[in-house]
């Protein structure tokens, strides 16, 4: 099958639009990045090393966890396990975009995934639920979030003193509030609500009794099982009227 076609057409206009749309949340990411930069230098990383980590890894929660394990020596396997566990949600996030990603060439597909992070994924996944295909937000949103993360880290490394206690400003809740707003902005029907209830229970159970950082994957899979057995009736019927809501 050399002639496989990839029908998804990127609209440069829309990429720019998504880049600008994600600017406000990116400002919060700058603050979060500054908190990371400060924490990193406090743990003994050099400025360049902190910046390199943010540039290459680009996964905030796992970076915080990794530098918590920093010392004169770092045990490699525990760091790998923690980073994998915290970031394992990417596996599911990527998979959930596959129906769209299969329509772009493999090079673009994996290129886009370099920029996959919670905020831009949440927008794309929620829009897909309402019948809109938006990979532009992964590209445009991802770029601006990535730059914000790097700039934030840079600020934290050099001017971190200003941000001694980002928690007192509520900065640790930015992502949580954003993701909650995305979830509540999406489609809600009995099927989704049952999935959410099961996801909530499973994630809480995993958080209490399973190894640390497994709760996101456990909850998400539990919610997915509901969808596996409870199929939506005729998804083609509704999109027109939904748009006005």
């Amino acid at each position: 099958m050399k002639n496989a076609s990839y029908p998804y057409q990127f609209q440069p206009e829309k990429v720019r639009y998504e880049l600008i749309r994600m600017l406000p949340i990116s400002l919060f990411v700058v603050a979060f990045g500054a908190a990371f930069g400060l924490a990193a230098v406090q743990q003994g990383l050099g400025p360049l090393e902190s910046l390199l980590m943010s540039t290459l890894v680009f996964a905030g929660a796992s970076q915080f966890a990794a530098i918590d394990m920093w010392g004169a020596e770092v045990s490699v396997i525990p760091v790998m396990v923690v980073v994998f566990a915290i970031n394992s949600r990417h596996l599911l996030m990527g998979a959930s975009l596959y129906p769209m990603l299969k329509d772009v060439s493999p090079a673009k597909r994996y290129g886009l995934l370099l920029l996959l992070t919670d905020a831009n994924w949440a927008v794309s996944a929620q829009e897909y639920q309402s019948g809109r295909r938006n990979l532009e937000v992964i590209l445009g949103g991802g770029l601006v979030l990535w730059l914000a993360w790097i700039v934030g880290t840079w600020l934290g490394v050099y001017f971190g003193g200003f941000l001694q206690n980002p928690k007192s400003l509520g900065m640790d809740m930015v992502l949580g509030c954003f993701l909650l707003a995305m979830a509540l902005g999406g489609k809600k029907n009995p099927r989704v609500l049952v999935a959410w209830a099961l996801a909530a229970l499973a994630s809480l159970a995993a958080w209490k009794w399973l190894p640390a950082n497994t709760h996101v994957v456990a909850g998400a899979l539990a919610g997915g099982v509901v969808g596996f057995f409870w199929l939506e009736k005729k998804p083609d019927d509704e999109p027109v009227k939904e748009a006005s809501a």
């Binding site: 949600r89 959930s96 996944a125 929620q126 959410w196 909850g219 998400a220």
Partner: peptide, 25 residues
Amino acid sequence: RISPRIESFINTMASSVLIAIIVPM
């Protein structure tokens, strides 16, 4: 192969990711 069942699994899983992050938080 993305059957309707797999698609449905993926879609409920996607919004459940959000819930599974937020509730323990």
